[in-house]
Nucleic acid binder design. Structure first.
Lengths: 123, 123
DNA sequence: TGCGAAACTGGCCGGGTGGCCAGGACTTCC
DNA sequence: GGAAGTCCTGGCCACCCGGCCAGTTTCGCA
C-alpha cells in the first residue's frame, strides 16, 4: 500500500455517450502520470457527464431562502434554523413554505433532494 | 459558434483536494483537443472525486431499509411508503428508526442527505 | 433443538411540520 | 405617490414524525 505521491493518477471514465467517451479515451490514453481505470478498478477521480439541461438557471431563490435551504440540508429543525439565523420559527416556516413551492416539493426532505439534484445546493 | 466535430472538449474540474486538482490541472492543460472549463462555464463533462474512503462498503443496510430509504429520497411520507411496500406504517417507522440510527442522522431529511453523500443512494 | 438476530406489527404520546389566516416594515421601480 | 417584492412575526390547527413500550413470526446457526 505504498502511497507514492508521484504515482499515476487513476481516472475512471464514466461517460455513456460513446462518441465523447471515445474521444476522451484517445486524448487521455497517452499522458504520462495519468492512467484510465480498468472496469471496476478503484479510481482517485472520475469523469462524468455534465448535461446542461439539468441546471436551467438557479431557480429564483432569495438569499434568505438559500440560508434556510442550506440548514435544512444539514438536517436542522425549524427551531434550530430559527436560532441559527436569529429569526422566529414562524419566519422559518414561512421561508420553508416558499421553498416547497418554488422547488415543487412535497416536504422538506423532498425539497433538499430536488435542490441537490439540480445543483442549487451541494450535499 | 460553428459546432466543428473536432471542437475542443470542455472539461470541468470539480475536485476539492488541492493536491489532486493541481496535478490534474498540470496534466490536462496541454492536451490538444481538450480544455479545462473556466469557473462557471458549461462543460461537456466533469472530473469528480472518487475517494474510496468515503464509501466504506455500503454500510450494513438491509434490503428493506434500502427500499424505505429510496422512497424517503423521493419525499414520500411514512404512509405513502407503507402503501408502496405493502407494509404497515408502524413497520415503516421501525425501518426509518433503524436508518436514522445506522446513518447517524437526526431526521429523515438528514438521513437522505447522509446516504446521498456517501453514495448509498443516487439522487 | 434451543437461541438469537432480523423483520414485522401495534398502541401511545410529545413535539415537529406544513397550511391557513392575519399583520407590519423595508427597498426598489414606475 | 403608489405598486411590487422581500423579509419578518403572530396565532391556530390537522397531521406527521420519531421514540417509547410491547408483541409476533421467520430464519440461520451452533
Amino acid at each position: 500500500m505504498s502511497e507514492d505521491k508521484t504515482a499515476e493518477i487513476v481516472l475512471a471514465l464514466e461517460i455513456d455517450a460513446p462518441a465523447l467517451a471515445d474521444r476522451l479515451t484517445a486524448l487521455l490514453s497517452n499522458i504520462p502520470g495519468l492512467r484510465l481505470a480498468a472496469p471496476g478498478e478503484q479510481a482517485a477521480a472520475a469523469i462524468v457527464a455534465r448535461d446542461p439541461r439539468i441546471m436551467p438557471e438557479d431557480i429564483a431563490l432569495t438569499q434568505r431562502e438559500l440560508d434556510v435551504l442550506a440548514l435544512m440540508a444539514e438536517g436542522a429543525s425549524n427551531k434550530m434554523i430559527a436560532r441559527q439565523l436569529g429569526i422566529s420559527v414562524h419566519t422559518v416556516k414561512f421561508h420553508v413554505g416558499s421553498l416547497l413551492d418554488k422547488l415543487d416539493a412535497t416536504g422538506r426532505t423532498d425539497a433538499v433532494a430536488h435542490a441537490a439534484r439540480r445543483g442549487v445546493i451541494e450535499l
